[in-house]
Amino acid sequence: MRSRQAQVGQAADELAAGKRPRMSGIARKEAIAGYFAISPWLLGFLIFQLAPILAAFYISSTEWRILSAPEFIGVRNFDKLLFKDDLFWQSIKVTVIYVIFRVPVSAVLSLALALLMNQQLAGRRLFRTIYYLPAVIPLVAVSMMWIWIFNPEYGVLNSFIRLFGIEGPQWIHSSRWALPALIIMSLWQVGTGIVIFLAGLQGIPAHLYEAATIDGANTWQRFLKVTLPMLSPVVLFALVMNVIGSFQIFTQAYIMTAGGPGNATLFLVLYIYRNAFEWFHMGYASALAWVLFVVVLVISLIMLRSSEHWVHYEGRIGGA
């Protein structure tokens, strides 16, 4: 669907194309205004986005330890990380496991809660507030809070488990449980997903449900045949955003585990941080950051490509 503005714009372009490529007074005025309006942003974009991207590209092909000039080494950084650096693969493994568990579980959880919120329940607004609250408070504070919740000796979580006569795991003090602990903690912040899904649910026209009910569909069938297809674009969006966000997990590991125990929570971004700002391998850290980009890009593209098979857009629902 094209916006009206785009149509107008195109029409104008066509008109202009017919004439000499010289601007009329009005068009020149508009162009000047355009350059004027865009210049602060454009300058910022060039300096703080485009130039750093180009620089990062160059840095990733150098060995650069800040004090001496960057030394060009071609693709050696990438060669090293792909074939010689076990810690890189450890960081990929840890990050991917985190994403694989966190994203689907939090999607299901927030969808379920959004469905609940969408019912005519008493205190709906209060509940919505409570569910969303954890998603707004500073991650540093959240992390400090969960350090103590997870403390195997004094933490409230293991105290609770102890009520059943079981000694809980060592959580962030165990290389086996540290990653699950961070996943559990991330599920506490499902609020964003709930809000997105709730908005999507409220956008589904009531007449579709009415029609389905007339056709004899029960609650479950209505969910499968109406809610899910109608919600699928929102689901796709939420999943992609969540994948992109989850790949960039840093604060929790920085505050709570420092990547440990062992390297059990050495997420990719934490590994980038340590290479750059603890060991000062700027070139190598840049190469790692590009890997982050490629991984996120490829996974997003796969998700978008696969969405052709499961995302339904409005026009198609009647016919399907």
Binding site: A31, A55, A56, Q248, V269, A289, L292
Partner: peptide, 28 residues
């Protein structure tokens, strides 16, 4: 506003949007 180069800039801009912040952090 229509001005020469607008769409080229926009394309360039879209192309960089997917790049995570962490890529640019070292140069910044």
């Amino acid at each position: 506003l229509r001005f020469p180069g607008r769409d080229a800039i926009f394309l360039l801009f879209l192309a960089t949007m997917m790049i995570p912040h962490y890529v640019t952090i070292i140069p910044l």
